[in-house]
């Protein structure tokens, strides 16, 4: 592991993510939504001003949420509260740390603040989760200090195709790293590290573990219990659900049903009796936007590097 990961500080940061495994982290915009999420069994909530589908619709610049709204949500629930900062926006991150959020998501769903650098995360007391589309990106974020990864999907669309593509890419590259270590030892790992642009030691650790060295959730485009279970089957440790709970929900009770159904689907992702029940309980899903016709500039997952 990288030097940062052997410290007590990193144990505690990565440890909280380990305690979230098998759970669902839900985007919420109000204390009432946060309570719906908590009652449904969410293992954490992500406090933000607008769910990604509404950010997409509204356009403009998406920024860190107002601290007053984050505070209200912290006061409403006892489960961990996460919040998003813009990529590279070190001051937003410090403000969120000051607020005492439990995790910061340095997120491509917001408008990036720096086109060169992500935040150097290992100097913070609060842990960070970051998105990735491939293994190199994941290990670059971990090298910067991220204690949790999420494979990026296309947030706010309700189309799971990008999330699937990116976890498949990560899995394939982990298999490649294992094969490199087995066949060519450290030199082959170093060569692969140069190719995918990541730290050699972290890649070696990944090859030895046969998985990412931190917890990895799916995020972006997960809209139904079946989507959530699919991401678990593909090897994710848990699921972020952004717009899928509250977008187009007819009533708060319908949102609560969706939330309960997705919690159930993640806990029992390989039990089809439970999944049938979860799908029935979930009811109508958000309408969604197919990713197939999207222009590159409309894609959030492409932000970051």
């Amino acid at each position: 592991m990288a030097s940062a990961s052997t410290t007590d500080d990193f144990t505690v940061k990565a440890g909280l993510a380990q305690m979230l495994k098998g759970g669902v982290i839900m985007d919420v915009t109000t204390p009432a939504e946060a309570r719906i999420a908590e009652e449904a069994g969410a293992c954490a909530v992500m406090a933000l001003e607008r769910i990604p589908s509404d950010i997409r619709a509204a356009g403009g610049v998406a920024r860190m949420s107002n601290p007053s709204m984050v505070k209200e949500i912290q006061a409403a629930v006892t489960i961990p509260v996460m919040a998003k900062a813009r990529i590279g926006h070190v001051v937003e991150c410090r403000i969120l740390q000051q607020l005492g959020v439990d995790y910061i998501d340095e997120s491509e769903v917001l408008t990036p603040a720096d086109d060169q650098f992500h935040v150097q995360k290992d100097g913070f007391k609060v842990p960070f989760v970051c998105g990735c589309r491939n293994l190199g990106e994941a290990l670059r974020r971990i090298k910067e200090g991220a204690a949790m990864i999420r494979t990026k999907g296309e947030a706010g669309t309700g189309d799971v195709v990008e999330a699937v593509k990116h976890i498949r890419t990560v899995n394939a590259e982990i298999a490649q790293a294992k094969a490199a270590l087995a066949s060519g030892g450290e030199l082959a790992v170093a060569k692969l590290a140069r190719e995918i642009g990541c730290d050699v030691e972290l890649l070696k650790t990944t090859a030895e573990l046969g998985r990412l060295p931190v917890v990895n959730f799916a995020a972006g485009g997960v809209a139904t219990p079946a989507d959530a279970a699919l991401m678990m089957e593909l090897g994710c440790d848990g699921v972020f659900v952004g717009s899928g709970i509250f977008k187009d929900a007819k009533t708060p009770e319908h949102a609560a049903q969706r939330a309960r159904a997705i919690v159930k689907a993640v806990a029992h992702w390989n039990d089809y009796g439970e999944l049938v029940e979860a799908c029935i309980e979930h009811g109508e899903a958000m309408k969604g936007i197919s990713n197939a016709g999207m222009k590159p500039e409309e894609r959030m997952a492409g932000r970051g590097w």
Partner: peptide, 9 residues
């Protein structure tokens, strides 16, 4: 883990 989640599940 989260005790609330475990209890609900």
């Amino acid at each position: 883990g989260e005790s609330t989640t475990m209890a609900i599940v």
